[in-house]
């Protein structure tokens, strides 16, 4: 049965990537959107562009993984093709994991492209690659789970976009992308600490600037916890939606 689940997971991800993710509009949105935001900010607040790179990366992972992921499940449920997966000999957690894997693969591919561009401009001699890899991977897992949760929580495709943005935009402004969390008022800092993006930006900043593992473990740990909670919540919600 485990073999069935793993195989199903792999092929579901592959199918989603081909059918939905690697399509021109989705690719360009995945890259353009974070760039546009960072550029808009940089123009208004000229300064150390380099310090914006971790935020840019985190935003790219966030939008790259969750934009399509938030739509995919509700879309397939609406048009009925989700039933094909439910009829297949694959257990629900594996089905959902396949959906997650699709979003993560796409998000990480786009982010890697952005990372290469950023490094070629700013140089990356201080980069801790292992830390970078872990930070990107756990960020992608957390945001992909977030996307999946959004997708199973709503009934209509347009609701998914609304709900996803309702969650993502506050995160963008509080998560340390543009201004550091420490400079926020205390009560906003409390909220920022409840958002996965905050930990993603922190871990990525540390990875780019040769930060110390002692603090980054905590960030990575939180991202793992967010992933687990959001994934479980998504699975629970999906199981209840069926039937």
């Amino acid at each position: 049965m485990l073999v069935d689940d793993l195989r199903g997971m792999f092929y579901i991800a592959l199918k989603d990537l081909r059918a939905y993710y690697f399509k021109p509009p989705n690719i360009s949105w995945g890259i353009l959107f974070p760039f546009a935001f960072i550029l808009a900010f940089a123009i208004r607040n000229p300064g150390d562009l380099r310090s914006l790179v971790p935020g840019l990366l985190a935003l790219t992972v966030l939008f790259g993984t969750s934009s399509m992921e938030a739509i995919v499940i509700v879309f397939e449920r609406r048009i009925g093709s989700l039933e094909r997966l439910l009829l297949a000999p694959i257990r629900l957690p594996a089905l959902l994991a396949g959906k997650l894997l699709g979003g993560m693969t796409f998000g990480l591919t786009v982010t890697l492209a952005v990372l290469l561009i950023a490094l070629s401009i700013f140089g990356g001699t201080e980069t801790n690659w292992l830390m970078m890899a872990l930070a990107l991977l756990l960020s992608a897992t957390a945001f992909s789970s977030l996307g999946a949760f959004v997708s199973v929580a709503v009934r209509e495709v347009f609701e998914a976009q609304t709900l996803a943005n309702f969650i993502r935009f506050p995160m963008m402004f509080l998560g340390g992308v543009f201004v550091s969390v420490d400079s926020l008022p205390a009560w906003l800092q409390v909220i920022a600490r409840l958002l996965p993006l905050t930990y993603s930006v922190e871990a990525l900043r540390a990875a780019l600037t040769g930060g110390r593992w002692e603090t980054v473990w905590l960030d990575l740990g939180f991202l793992a916890i967010f992933s687990l909670c959001l994934y479980s919540l998504a699975e629970y919600t999906l199981a209840r939606r069926l039937d």
Partner: peptide, 13 residues
């Protein structure tokens, strides 16, 4: 094997 009421294969494939 199951054929549901509505044909539900993937439009994109």
């Amino acid at each position: 094997g199951v054929v549901p009421e509505t044909s539900n294969l993937y439009d994109e494939l």
